[in-house]
Design a protein around this nucleic acid. Structure first.
Length: 271
DNA sequence: TTCCAGGCGTATC
DNA sequence: GATACGCATGGA
């Protein structure tokens, strides 16, 4: 990992990293583009402004320090994973080769468990701009993303201001199950993937897709493979017999390249 | 106006 | 176990 201090900023040299592709590709919902090449966001309630420099592959983490960079952001941005190597591996497959070439700057963010779980509960049968709106209202209300402990007294009625529709009662059930001890996110992190899936799906509003998203983005279980309407199209059109072997163990990372590719490249219209 | 969105609960067979 | 349908909201 190559970095140096520059005044109150950290300058990071990092290949295979694009801000638009990583922060605005539907895996996290509260990064906001505040200027050209600049995003503002947060992990837990530690805020960060990050921008790309003119020099290719160099990023500026504004107004932070070395310990936050090493303890928080290096992990959050998954800097210890070699995405160049992953892309070479994926590129054995023709479609994945195109997806990796199309958006080579995608990385999987190592997000907070509760934030990922609750965000993807909100995401169901919803579109990304509206998901961002609902989460934005939630964070505005709580001055940051609320921990589940902060939401213990919420009801579907008290959450009406979110305008999250039928999803509000699902959030309430998730909080209730965690607060009641039926669900322990630390325990889920230690479970094998089958038990983790099964346990998450005891929450109302958490089915196969939301569970996979929570596991991939909140628990960094790279073998989790979320299938939404877009990935259904990917599978139907390119992988009718299943994913290629080169994705084994990191299906979720492959999924993110494919999701972004079919959703934004225009490849879908050409099928 | 109708359709759709990072789906799921429920009823029915 | 599979399939059909309703669900809140808002943009296209």
């Amino acid at each position: 990992m190559e970095y140096r201090k520059d005044g109150r900023d950290i300058l990071l040299k990092q290949d295979d990293f694009g801000l638009d592709e990583t922060l605005d590709c539907g895996q996290a919902f509260r990064w906001e583009k505040i200027a050209a090449n600049t995003y503002k966001g947060a992990f837990l309630n530690k805020e960060l402004v990050i921008s790309s420099e003119d020099e290719q592959g160099v990023f500026r983490l504004h107004n932070t320090n070395e310990s936050d960079f090493l303890d928080i952001w290096a992990d959050y941005f998954d800097l210890s994973t070699d995405y160049g190597e992953l892309k070479r591996r994926f590129s054995e497959d023709e479609t994945l080769a195109k997806a990796c070439a199309y958006a080579g700057g995608i990385r999987i963010l190592r997000q907070d468990r509760w934030e990922a779980l609750s965000s993807f509960i909100i995401s169901q049968n919803n579109n990304i701009p509206r998901i961002k709106g609902i989460i934005g209202r939630l964070c505005e209300h709580y001055s940051g993303y609320p921990a589940w402990q902060d939401m213990k007294d919420e009801t579907a009625e008290s959450l009406a201001y979110l305008r999250s529709g039928f999803r509000a009662k699902y959030l309430v059930d998730a909080v209730a199950k965690i607060a009641g001890g039926e669900i322990d996110l630390d325990e889920i992190a230690k479970m094998d993937i089958a038990d983790a899936r099964k346990t998450l799906q005891t929450i109302k509003g958490v089915g196969p897709k939301v569970a996979e998203c929570a596991l991939l983005f909140g628990f960094y279980r790279t073998e989790a493979f979320p299938v939404d309407v877009w990935v259904k199209r990917v599978m139907a059109n390119w992988y009718p017999n299943g994913l290629p072997d080169c994705t084994k163990g990191v299906e979720g990372i492959a999924q993110q390249y494919l999701f972004h590719y079919i959703r934004t490249s225009g490849a879908f219209e050409k099928i």
